[in-house]
Amino acid sequence: MKKGTVILVVPTALFSIILLYLVLWNAGVSFMNWSLLNPTPSLVGLETFVSVVRQFQFSNSLVHSLELSVSLVAIGNILGILLASLLYFLKSNGARSIFMSIMIYPLAISMAVNGLIWLWLYNINIGIDWVLTKIGLPQFPWLSSTSTMFPSLIVVSVWAYTGIAALFYLAGFMNIDKAVVEAARLDGAGAFKITYKLLVPNSFNSFVISTALLFLFSFRIFSLPFILSGGTTNIFLQTSVLYMYYLFTVEFFSDATAVATIITVIATIVIIPYALIMIRRWIRR
């Protein structure tokens, strides 16, 4: 390999290696006992992990993160298929791209701003509930009841991320040979039948991509629950990344790195196989 060729990859490789260094450094500290109370850390093996895993807040926040991800993956995929099929059968390309943009636009706004907006929409006096009471429906408590707080977070996430699933299903549907769809239509198959007999079964790639991206994005949502709950300590909205940041702010550094290591491992289990599938499909053709 020539020198000129290698220079090309130096910046990317350098910054990727810095990232790897950060991840490994983080993992290293999680085997120590560094905290505000103990400024000179020493190796303690798995002790930090054992004590962290026993905390109520750890399992509580991890369950929240997984619940959020699983809900978003399930709802996002179902809504994504529905919306993509509605878009697929549109005759006008212009209309299709306008509707698609409307479903994607939440991603152009920061999650912190989305959080600010939804805080007011969830206000039980002047938000969505005002409309509900006007048309004679009962008020929904949204963020003011502990049992509806978490579902309210899921609603915002679904609003923000479903567009991704719709986009990838639509791209998958568009890749299916038009001639086959036309033949099915001539045979008298309706739109509904074409969708579930022909489009969906041939969109396995879209399913893999939507599932992986929805999982990874929802697993790292930070600012949305941070803004909706006004900080890191609301145990009904606390996700793993929030709990980790909370441990950092109270200076339990090793505990924070242990939680971070667990988060990284869970995400990596999804990322690496996904990356290797992608590379085989797209880079080496």
């Binding site: 990859v9 990727s16 990232l19 988060i263």
Partner: peptide, 21 residues
């Protein structure tokens, strides 16, 4: 494969997890 896995890791990792380092 190695480099691509690394850049995918950097793209999709919950970057909050690298907070302390």
């Amino acid at each position: 494969d190695v480099l691509f896995s690394l850049i995918a890791l950097a793209t999709f990792i919950p970057y909050q997890a690298t907070l302390i380092p």
